[in-house]
C-alpha cells in the first residue's frame, strides 16, 4: 500500500467490526439445517427424479444465499457493495458455463452416442 491507513487501530476497521458471533451461528445452523433437509429428502426418496434434483438444488441455493448473507455479510452497504457487485456479475457466468456445457453435450450424445453405454 502506498498510503497511510484511515484507521490508526486496525481493529476499528468496519470489516473487523462487522464480525458477529450471533450472525455466524445463525448462518452455521441454517445452512447445516438446510443440508439436513436435503439429505432427508434424498434418503426418503420423497420426490422422484427431476423433482428431487430440483428440490435439492433449491435447498443448495438457499444454503448458499444464507452463507453469503450471514457468513460473508454481503449487502449493499458502502463497505460491501463492490463485493456484492462482483458476485452478482460473476454468478451468471457460472450458470452459463454449466448449463450451456451440459446442454451441448446432451444434444451431442443424442446425435453421436449409443444411449446407456457410458461412452
Amino acid at each position: 500500500m502506498t498510503s497511510t491507513s484511515t484507521h490508526p487501530n486496525p481493529l476499528d476497521h468496519p470489516e473487523v467490526r462487522a464480525a458477529g458471533a450471533g450472525r455466524y451461528a445463525l448462518g452455521y445452523l441454517l445452512s447445516l439445517g438446510l443440508m439436513f433437509v436435503a439429505t432427508a429428502l434424498v434418503l426418503d426418496h420423497a420426490l422422484s427424479g427431476v423433482g428431487l434434483l430440483a428440490a435439492t438444488a433449491g435447498l443448495a441455493l438457499a444454503a448458499i444465499l444464507v452463507q453469503f448473507r450471514f457468513l460473508f455479510g454481503l449487502d449493499l452497504s458502502e463497505g460491501q457493495v463492490w463485493q456484492t457487485t462482483a458476485l452478482v456479475l460473476t454468478v451468471p457466468l457460472f450458470i452459463l458455463m454449466i448449463v450451456l456445457t451440459v446442454w451441448m453435450f446432451h444434444t451431442l450424445a443424442l446425435h453421436t452416442h449409443f444411449p446407456g453405454t457410458g461412452m
Binding site: M1, S3, S5, H13, E15, V16, Q83
Partner: peptide, 11 residues
C-alpha cells in the same frame, strides 16, 4: 493524503 483504505483494498 486522504489514504486509500489498505484493509478493504486487500479484502
Amino acid at each position: 493524503d486522504r489514504g486509500h483504505d489498505p484493509v478493504s483494498t486487500r479484502t
